[in-house]
Design a protein around this nucleic acid. Sequence first.
RNA 1: GCUCCGGUAGUAUAGUCCGGUUAAGUAUUUCGGCCUUUCGAGCCGAAGACCCGGGUUCGAAUCCCGGCCGGAGCACCA
Length: 524
Amino acid sequence: MQEVNELPLERQKEIVAEKWPEALTEEKAEEKRLLPPLPNAEKYPKVVTRFSPNPDFVLHLGSARAIILCYDYAKMYNGLFYLRFEDTDSKTKKPKLEFYDAVRDDLEWLGCDWDAEFIQSDRLQIYYEHAEEILRNGNAYVCICKREDFQEKVKASQSCPCRELSADENLLRWNRMLDGTYGEGEAVVRIKTEVNHSNPAVRDWPALRIIDTEKYPHPRVGTKYRVWPLYNFSTGIDDHLMGITHIIRGKEHLTNQARQEYMYQYFGWDYPETIHYGRLKITGASLSKSEIVKGINSGEYKHWDDPRLATLAALRKRGITSEAIHSLMIDVGPKPADVVLSWKNLYAHNRKIIDPIANRYFFVRDPIRLIVNNVPRVFTAQIPLHPDYPERGYRSFDVKPDNGEATFLVSKDDLNIMESKLVIRFMELFNFQVKKAEETLVQATFLSESYEEAKKLGAPLIHWIPHDRGVPCEVTLPDASVAKGVAEEACRALNPDEIIQFERFGFVRVDEVNEKLIVYFAHR
RNA sequence: GCUCCGGUAGUAUAGUCCGGUUAAGUAUUUCGGCCUUUCGAGCCGAAGACCCGGGUUCGAAUCCCGGCCGGAGCACCA
């Protein structure tokens, strides 16, 4: 070994090439990106993951990361994926009935079907039983200290008087929590840890507290319970009871693992495997629930599907497919480093998916009239719905000149082309020569029909529609502004949710088809 | 302030655990070219990165130490 290592690298390579040539043959299996293997997956008979949202708002791109990671890993190992609503705070993060279904809808849209569903507000008895057990065993206590007093003690690595209470006294206090002797904020169950744990945030963490449910009724169970578990208690118990083998969540939960491990030790349980992925951001859009809600309340955003937001509802409305989100998330993976996504990345994934399916149509934004004279005859243009799939059929346009004069609508965006280029071709129609280009009207003369000639002349190709046909169309852009114009007649046959491409404009999702066509812009 | 976690091209990611077949691979972006009756798609090509400084080693993106930068937690929220 020593001997070999002292040889120059070149010589080492030569020797390997002589003796074991197969070691040098490159294998190039160019496959799709896969998730890295799950830690210790083989340790468990069946991998079980869970997505556990608080139903207090709709899901967004950040939630999609948790969902897709959990779902895909479960599928990858032939395991189970659960949905668990964590609705244990009817006061500061109050769940709303409408969001339970909204979350389910989002999950279905993402194509992540869950094998079982749990709702924590149905499981209070379970938490109570475990609370009693842990109190009985002396591993927790009911603390009635003032919050500030407790925090001071903890900061100084000191224990509070309640910590020294006997199990019986704690059980007595526990019953007073349940029966209403203690009011909201007057008592809390704490799990014992080292009072001098290196991370002060871990020390004697709170497990259950009282909520005045007369004042803050729970949307599902109303005033039935007044003692409610905190995150680490309910989640910790559920993860074990439900047999979750792999917890995949954001790294903001890292210290929660340290906290929960105390409880697991007291109950004699093994803590599941964990993956804590980093923060996910996307440029220019907040993924913070509270900020989004604030924006909606202030009227900055009309609704949680405002195109400026990265909620799943907003992305869906814009024609971003769940497949695109899926492959983006696989691309990003589960690593702990923070990521700042760019919209262009999302668009690239989406474009790959929708380009083959989106049929093509003409949309003239900010239309201006263009009159061509000397048009020799009637023209009928047949333009394929998709250039790569002519078998899908055609849209046809009839151009009937009146006294040699035909009138079209073209986009104001193309005015600069008119001004600088004399010869222009209408796609799939004919070539003409611009005579006069003004803000409201362009005058032109028919030149020729052949595409070859347009090519030879280097004439730009622009899209068009006959002035007396078409459907008024509004395109909501990603910045929530609205582009107005006219879409070609064939668009009347479109259906909501179809994703199409307006040629030379971009991909859009059809939202409404009435007297007006309402669409949302996805990306170019 | 205390406690953690992280830093590979514009963006995302592979390689990092077990240092050497990789003078860092892939996707996207940008730019060129080809093709094309869309400024789309496709094809070809180019540009572009191991945070910094020490150390260990024949050899470090990979191991160790320090620094810098970024992020998270420090709620009777989840």
